[in-house]
Design a binder for these strands. Sequence first.
DNA 1: CACACTTTGTACCAGTCAGTTAATTTCGTC
DNA 2: GACGAAATTAACTGACTGGTACAAAGTGTG
Lengths: 236, 236
Amino acid sequence: MNDDMMLNEKAVAGGRSGWKQDPAGVQKNILAVAMTEFAANGLSGARIDEIAAKTHTSKRMIYYYFGDKERLYGRVLEEAYRHVRTGEEELELDHLPPVEALKRLAEFTFDHHSRHPDFIRIVMIENIHHGVYLEQSELIRLLNAGAIQKLEAICRRGRANGLFREDVSPLELHWHISASSFFNVSNQATFSRIFGSTLYTVDGQRSLRDHLVEMVVGLALKLDRAKGRARRAARP
Amino acid sequence: MNDDMMLNEKAVAGGRSGWKQDPAGVQKNILAVAMTEFAANGLSGARIDEIAAKTHTSKRMIYYYFGDKERLYGRVLEEAYRHVRTGEEELELDHLPPVEALKRLAEFTFDHHSRHPDFIRIVMIENIHHGVYLEQSELIRLLNAGAIQKLEAICRRGRANGLFREDVSPLELHWHISASSFFNVSNQATFSRIFGSTLYTVDGQRSLRDHLVEMVVGLALKLDRAKGRARRAARP
DNA sequence: CACACTTTGTACCAGTCAGTTAATTTCGTC
DNA sequence: GACGAAATTAACTGACTGGTACAAAGTGTG
């Protein structure tokens, strides 16, 4: 047990030094394990005893720090969003021309989601629960507020440039990028079992990503809309 | 109880007439209720007692006909796929020119998914379980085999026409259409709670769908690829 | 080192839930 | 109208699981 404590760097790195006991580290450890378990088994599928067993501490501690299963899940949800969103912060797009920035953002999102399958699974689970736990978290709404700001800036510059459509919607761009990036991870199991895994090889993934970028850029740009003209002209 | 039986049209419509008892009808009823319950609560979240209570029959019957919870879930999964895929059969595309056919297919898929949220939820749940139950069903693979054939036909005609790119991939087109159509339903809860529900109004949905069609068509067509040229030229 | 407070371990409980036992009713057939 | 098979019901069980009681041990302070 002592050895385990020593292995945890944060115990020393944390604010209050000299403590052998490490509440923050224990909570962090619990959250990490709980995240994996919830991601793997869902809210009702995850077992508190199982989480406890995989922790450096005991079941009692879970209840001590988090109250009950649902609140633990709520914290895991927040942690998942925080972790992923802060990972996105490092992206610097302002110095790129709008089109390049948009490409880069889409590519990054695609790769980023694919690098965080547990986050995707948590969001899937939260959607199964109709987002009721997400709603209880002000933090998550805050975290995400900044997520479209990058896109809004890009669109503003793109319109100023005269390259982007005037009616381009940052929110909708975000939706399309998210949809493909999310689905790519969330539905890999069923899709590949039904249609084979060609799209989940390195080449397949690159192709999907490149085409997604192509499509999103095409949606934002002004040009070559000519052939879309025949679209359902009148709808009374 | 007798009244309930009478209300069930299938009891008479079924093969063997004259029976008051109606095994097929009972099973159908159980499957329908189970579908709703599994879709609402997941595999581990759904309660057999709850399913039984909402049925016209009893818990014992569920075990009598389906064995155990997992096999019931498996049957629900098959039923969900069957129901949705047979709904797709009615789509007649062969008489339309390739571009129109592609548009129509994408639009249909988008609307169809949005009309069958329970199917989407079941597939979400199945993905949470890594698709292990889907794998056990030969039926589902069969049902889906025909799903891309429509797209393959369209692409063949489109290439013959000279309008479609030579390297267009039906599978990938299917993937992109599915991704947006699926995500639109699966992530509505979290997306709308975070970013508001503008995209889930009638206008928002129409816009999403129209743009999806636009993007997919753009991906299939040959023209206006010029501006995509600057893409990561060399990757050694 | 003694005191107040926080953190942790052990053992246990009470409710839930998938699955079963055994007996009863319904149906076609002879 | 009696017989055997299929269909159905109600009550039960045993394992699991979320949550708790209580006791013990660590920590800074004086």
